[in-house]
Design a protein around this nucleic acid. Structure first.
Lengths: 347, 347
DNA sequence: TATTGGCACTCATAGGTCTTGAGTGCCAGA
DNA sequence: TCTGGCACTCAAGACCTATGAGTGCCAATA
């Protein structure tokens, strides 16, 4: 069993190692942290920590380094989440500034988060499929070409150009818009599929093929998996912290660019935290825990954030396992709150 | 003066060095390329090339490496732009597939280009400010909140949410839409500023404050510098080619992420090529030429591409100076043509 | 005049050996 | 339970040497 002081030693090792990237020896600990005991005593504690696999020695006679398990214990039990400094809060406000639309808000936010943490920052785009419909618009572009625009109550705007099989008259578009809005405004995207067919039936037979094509485009927008995506910033930071990875960062960068695995991980983190504090707490996935996603040796910190539609998505940072968890968790939490607020979240 | 054979030697050095990353010696050249002369003769040629600063020796007794100037001569005079293989053409077609809107087309294209070249691929978003207005839409979101949507004839859709100072009635939005479209459809964005004020005047005095705010939002969208942006893919490739840079790739990645300098470079490359072949030729900026943009040691290959609106933007790749120019130039050219075609370019 | 074989010279790289010192594990004594 | 002492380990750095790819130059040759 690890004693109280043992845990304090673990905390010291994590902090020192994160700060210096040097394996931490017993003497260093005695010097820097005012334990009232000698180096030999610390060594005994370290031997216990090593038995518990919370720390490890890169080679026989060197200092110790936290293991993934050690970081886990640190994050769960020992990390004091420091509140942001006034300067940092100020920096967020400056970054966010006056934003014109949701894309603007998100891209400013993601850059702010990257700046604050010096890591890769990630924001999951608020999924259309979990929101409600706020408005539909059909815009005549050319004969047989119509632009379908769908606005979600999260503020997200999606559009798609439809090539029709037959010509249409402008008034038809207008009545379709009115009918569609009447039927669909306020309806959750998930339920739209059942409502959509009824719209076609409101129109006289000769118009139905064209109407059906347009309605189909709405379904296409809603069903499109493309909505599940991340915006990111600060990928250069991965290169900066290259030395913290045993191999090349190339596969990691590739995985991040691909997004697929990251989205899965985000999904898992959301599920695991389902209901807890309205998903607004910061959750952490460390090192080998991310191996299934091709992200071994990295840690991912995420928090849920809310939109005015009441939907929840996640944002977070990704970096080497050797990162400053205290500071980064605080940053993720703060940014999630700022973002929720500026999107009009009610939670 | 460099002889005919001298240039052939330069070509051989570039090709070998790009392929192997090893400085190229006279013996290697004699072995791999069937010059009908001895190594000593090649050495004489190499001495001349060195006098002209087309090649350099990393240290006294090692093979030679092309200088930036050497690459320049290679690109301008010696590179044979290989046509793409059928397999590569096929790969492009598969990648592009069926696309729903312009964002989709661009993101597929940029990924295809990154795949083909194994470099960082860049596409300049077709700037709204150089296009014509195709349609305007004002969508009632809530009391005092309106979404302004602007569709350019390039297919680009931009939107912005406006918070109004006063309430509005829905019919006003409709008549504004009609008036605005009547006045603005087909007008180049650049000329819109002169037309916009006349719209306000068409409305009776009491409505003008609200109308002015909405018209202002249109001006805001058109004037927004945010339109000037790049989408990119394959940034991981920079990490893969890390060894080709003397320092860290970190500052380069940062510069790329920042986009600002890259956009300037794109602008310069467009200007320099103005009018030539309708801007559709591939132009190359090598090594130190990119230093002002924080991109020393990289080369950037770009080509113009056209949209249905007749506007031209650029796309290209960025990679280490030591890259396969022949293949990459071919890829950039081919992809620019594919993209122009699928955007309905008339050129 | 252009080309060639020969030869001395250079120097980065890799391998080998040695030294240094931070850090450990263990033990006997307080 | 803690501490001082001590032998032991081993990565990292300093230093040396051998190797060999590649050069520059020159006199001979076509």
């Amino acid at each position: 069993m690890v004693s109280e002081r043992g845990l304090a030693v673990l905390r010291a090792i994590v902090q020192d190692y994160v700060a210096t990237r040097e394996p931490v020896g017993s003497k260093t600990i005695v010097d820097k942290h005012r334990f009232g005991v000698s180096a030999a005593t610390i060594r005994n504690d370290m031997a216990l920590l090593e038995d518990e696999e919370l720390i490890a020695a890169p080679h026989t006679s060197s200092g110790r380094v936290p293991t993934d398990k050690g970081y886990r214990v640190f994050v769960d039990q020992l990390a004091d989440v420091k509140p942001l400094s006034p300067a940092q809060r100020h920096a967020i406000e400056v970054f966010l500034g006056a934003s014109v639309d949701i894309d603007d808000v998100l891209s400013r936010t993601v850059r702010a988060l990257a700046q604050l943490t010096h890591q890769v920052a990630l924001i999951q785009y608020p999924s259309v499929s979990r929101a409600r419909i706020q408005h539909l618009e059909f815009v005549a572009l050319a004969p047989r070409r119509v632009l379908t625009v769908l606005i979600a109550d999260t503020g997200v705007v999606e559009q798609r150009v439809v090539e029709l099989g037959a010509d249409y008259e402008e008034p038809v578009l207008r009545s379709l818009r009115d009918a569609a809005n009447e039927a669909l405004v306020g309806v959750p995207m998930a339920d739209a599929a059942t409502v959509l067919p009824t719209i076609v039936e409101r129109f006289p037979e000769p118009l139905r093929p064209v109407i059906a094509e347009l309605v189909e485009s709405v379904a296409g927008i809603i069903g499109s998996t493309r909505q599940e995506r991340l915006i990111m910033a600060g990928t250069a930071n991965l290169v900066r912290t290259e030395h913290d990875f045993t191999g090349s960062v190339y596969p990691i960068m590739e995985a991040i660019e691909e997004q697929v695995e990251l989205l899965k991980l985000f999904g898992e983190m959301a599920a695991e935290q389902h209901g807890v504090l309205g998903n607004r707490d910061v959750s952490v996935s460390i090192g080998r825990e991310n191996e299934p996603f091709g992200l071994a040796e990295t840690s991912v910190l995420t928090s849920g954030y809310g939109t005015s539609g009441g939907t929840v998505a996640r944002l977070g940072v990704l970096g080497p396992t050797r990162m400053d968890y205290s500071t980064n968790m605080a940053a993720v939490r703060a940014v999630a709150r700022y973002l929720s607020r500026s999107l009009g979240d009610q939670a």
